[in-house]
Write a protein that binds this DNA or RNA. Structure first.
Lengths: 121, 121
DNA sequence: CGTCTGTTATACAATGCATATAACAACAAA
DNA sequence: TTTGTTGTTATATGCATTGTATAACAGACG
């Protein structure tokens, strides 16, 4: 799986890495049980510091996407709390859709956008 | 319109204020041409610093929600670049839906969530 | 033993956030 | 014209975040 970091982005590097790994899981490029490169390997590969990768992994662990094992390294392991996830998603979508609504994006256009994005999976 | 800031939130105060104003516009509690309280009044009202309000207003201006007038103060004025807005929304939704997909939230559940949120408008 | 793993600690510089005080120019109303 | 308001700008301080750097530790494996 290809990881690309935009060093000119205002988004934190560890968040970019987090997002790309989540996208990788959603698109089945990364599958449950699969191991990610170690923090040192990944850091070397991307050209960033070890601790920045470690922070991304720690966040992913906290969010229920990874399990960190001293033996095996970072393993994709999904912990699913669906009710909680739906509530988080609802709060995030509220602001985002309000933003879109102000930009005159209709409900139908949002639905279409959702379908287009889900086609990528 | 009631503004409520959560000082314990990890989200920046100026972003909370920005989001609530956007929600206010989307729900028609704030309408085009209406003036917001001045930076000093709003700061006094919420109990935060003037510059924090100013930053929120500046962001909203930059995003095309406000016009700042030395005479009238901060006026709701929507500048709509729909093509650009759709692209921004798509990028944000991609990560968010990937996150939800990992949490086993189906396409249909997202559609339903969208409808529920749009009901609030 | 040597090498890998995640983990932790410390330090440093740069940036972002929030506050504080102060001043300025432009406008409105007294 | 004076007074008060507006957004705007400047400077300063304290604190947290971000990213980097170096280092060490304990557990696991060959």
């Amino acid at each position: 799986m290809v990881i690309e970091i935009d060093f000119n982005s205002s988004e934190a590097i560890y968040m970019q890495l987090r997002n790309q790994i989540i996208l990788g899981i959603a698109t089945s490029q990364l599958q449950e049980g699969e191991t990610l490169p170690s923090v040192r390997q990944m850091a070397e590969h991307i050209g960033i510091n070890m601790h920045t990768v470690n922070k991304a992994y720690t966040v992913l662990k906290q969010e229920g996407f990874l399990k960190l094992d001293r033996r095996k390294g970072a393993v994709i392991a999904l912990d699913i709390d669906k009710l909680r996830a739906l509530e988080v998603l609802r709060q995030d979508l509220r602001v985002m859709l309000a933003w879109g609504s102000c930009k005159k994006i209709s409900r139908e256009e949002v639905h279409q956008l959702i379908d287009e994005i889900y086609e990528e999976y």
